[in-house]
Design a protein around this nucleic acid. Structure first.
Lengths: 195, 195
DNA sequence: GTCTATAGGTAGATAGAC
DNA sequence: GTCTATCTACCTATAGAC
């Protein structure tokens, strides 16, 4: 009765376990190179059994991506509510994003960013909605900051540039180095400030 | 006798034709989803005939990537030589990079940036050398600019942030919009300047 | 829910004729 | 150099037993 449900919430826990395993595999090997046998092994199932939980392999990719962007959006909403003042909200943008991207067991957002071309045309629009909701939070804070002169006024392009900078960190940041994620967030914010 | 040569220069022209077609297909569909039959069709060959020119499909990917980064490096070297003054050299960084990434028939650099995980461990080091040579040019100019107070002093992180911003443009820039590549380069440079 | 077994398709690569 | 033909391997997904 609960087969093939679309939502990504923490239900049956079997499904969620699969999504988390898929996130790590898709990030490390790429979606196409990850086989359903790999996915089964990762959770101790035969490959055929996966299709009780998901209709197709692509449905797993969509679930991973949706998890990545919705979880990050929720974290950002909470952090923004707690932040007092524009400067604190700017800080929240950078910290939440980088921790979601580079923190432990945080593969889902990276998959969301780097596997767009593996999606079919049918599934892309739904994820675009989720992405736009996240970016709208950024846009609001940036406009507020620009009004106070904290950042430059070209906020639309600034949003895209900053998000690009942050997304790219997954390509070079080494967790075992001496730069912590929080330090990195602070230094990247400093680069964006006008003063 | 000239089978399976490694260099990417404009030799036989057949090989180069293949590399250019592969660049477009790899960019549009991704490396894994592009079949050797697709590649053959694109140049009017049967799939088996490709393997006279390249030992493996991956060798084609490496050729595409090497072309993308070396061609861009050469263009940047030329532009930097011609530029008078630090400000002009900064401008060259942004313009060359974005035209190489977003200009007509410029798929190779994008493949270089977004298909790293499709490379085997054996082929990656060679491309890293080429990438580092390109980024070294950026680093030099940024340090020069920082010394003059044109950009912030955290040049290592600045280089990575700016390159991330520029790389990400392929995800949202629309060539048929009203923003030209040159305008975009100028506006992105403006965001990076301290004043 | 998970298993075994396998259908049905397509992938990269090779061999030998021309 | 390119073609035809094909090998071998592996892929996603399904069927039916338990």
């Amino acid at each position: 009765m609960s087969r093939h449900i679309t939502h990504t919430a923490d239900d049956g826990s079997r499904r969620m376990e699969l999504v988390r395993a898929a996130a790590r595999l898709f990030r490390d090997q790429g979606y196409e190179r990850t086989t359903v046998r790999d996915l089964g092994n990762a959770v101790g199932l035969q490959s055929g059994s996966l299709f009780y939980h998901f209709r197709t392999k692509e449905e797993m990719l969509v679930a991973v991506m949706a998890l990545g962007i919705t979880a990050t959006t929720e974290q950002l909403e909470d952090a923004l509510k707690a932040a007092r003042g524009t400067r604190a909200r700017l800080t929240a943008l950078f910290h939440v994003h980088l921790h979601s991207l580079l923190g432990d067991n945080q593969a889902a957002l990276e998959v969301m960013l780097y596997e767009w071309h593996s999606l079919s045309d049918a599934t892309r629009p739904g994820l675009i909605v989720l992405r736009d909701r996240y970016e709208a939070l950024w846009q609001q804070v940036l406009e507020e900051a620009a009004a106070e002169g904290l950042v430059k006024a070209d906020t639309g392009l600034l949003r895209r540039s900053l998000l690009g900078s942050l997304h790219w960190t997954v390509q070079w940041y080494k967790r075992d180095g001496d730069l912590s994620v929080s330090e990195l967030a602070d230094r990247m914010l400093a680069l964006a400030l006008t003063a």
